[in-house]
Nucleic acid binder design. Structure first.
Lengths: 168, 168
DNA sequence: TATTGTTATACTCTATAACTATA
DNA sequence: TATAGTTATAGAGTATAACAATA
């Protein structure tokens, strides 16, 4: 079954010709692949990749300003508002207007949200690690390193995703 | 200006923590960066990245079936229909129903479409090459190679994008 | 019956601008 | 005046299913 998908991919390559050299095209195809696996593996959690990233970052930065969060994740403020309100409705996130700047909104995980993320994180770790195929372990490490550099993140991350759910 | 953007990116990194190790997140951020540059550099052509890829593949495969094209580019058939009809309206693409299977649609560039793609291709080549920063030339080559492999394309492409507009 | 493409609908994400309430 | 967030609206892209014509 999976072999069939891969065979199709190779059969179609002649059609694509030079396009398979284009960084933008390669990134788009890779993302389709990863996001597809995301829903297969983590679909049970009823979360989209973007929603997952928002919850994780709130969990690691209790009280973070909504605008700063939107900026860091490149989510538009208008969209972030809807997403956060949705999380609030689902009882996962609390919104607090701070005394010293009553225009702002500070975000925290609720107790339920915290349990949810704690349950989610190890699953996400497993999922992310499983994305290696068909690269070797070393190739996948290199791919991640180059993408980090391309995105202007430091080449050594400040923490690994594995700290999230792995250690206690 | 650009330096300021990069500074912001680095300032926000602590917020993201382990997320910068996630392949899916890295791919999404990289794609946002590349697509952003695409519109800055090639916005004059009034084409979106997906539209560009469709036109190029039709140009390299005159008479290609619409369904095969949709499959290779992972564009949903319903969306492909709208896109191709739009190209037809703009006079860039012709649709032909072949005698031997009258359910199908074969796609070709019109003369105008051919001129359009011929003008576009060198610009796209320049754009794609300019995406290197801040990677070294070797690092960008490695990144492309690993993404090709991850996507199950052959590691050496059958043709380079540069054949498109470079040679005459 | 299965396949190719089309139509219709809905939902997500994005883009934009106008708006509020604060600062 | 500027900023943080909100609301409203429109558009692109995706997902899905039902459909017509053809095989």
């Amino acid at each position: 079954m999976m072999a069939q998908v891969e065979q199709e991919q190779r059969d179609q390559e002649p059609l694509l010709a030079g396009l398979t050299d284009s960084l933008g095209f390669l990134l788009r195809m890779a993302q389709l692949r990863v996001f597809g696996s995301f829903f297969e593996t983590l679909g049970q959690f009823n979360l989209k990749p973007g929603e997952f990233s928002v919850l994780v970052v709130i969990g690691q930065n209790a009280g973070v300003r909504q605008g700063l969060l939107a900026n860091a994740l490149r989510i538009k403020p208008a969209h972030m508002t809807k997403m956060v309100r949705n999380f609030e409705t689902r009882g996962l996130v609390t919104r607090t207007v701070p005394e010293d700047d009553r225009r702002a909104v500070e975000l925290c995980l609720s107790d339920e949200g915290d349990r949810y993320v704690t349950e989610l994180a190890p699953n996400f770790y497993e999922f992310d690690r499983a994305q290696q195929d068909p690269l070797t372990k070393e190739e996948m490490e290199t791919l991640r390193r180059l993408l980090r550099k391309f995105n202007r993140y430091s080449e050594r991350p400040s923490a690994t995703l594995y700290d999230l759910g792995g250690g206690k």
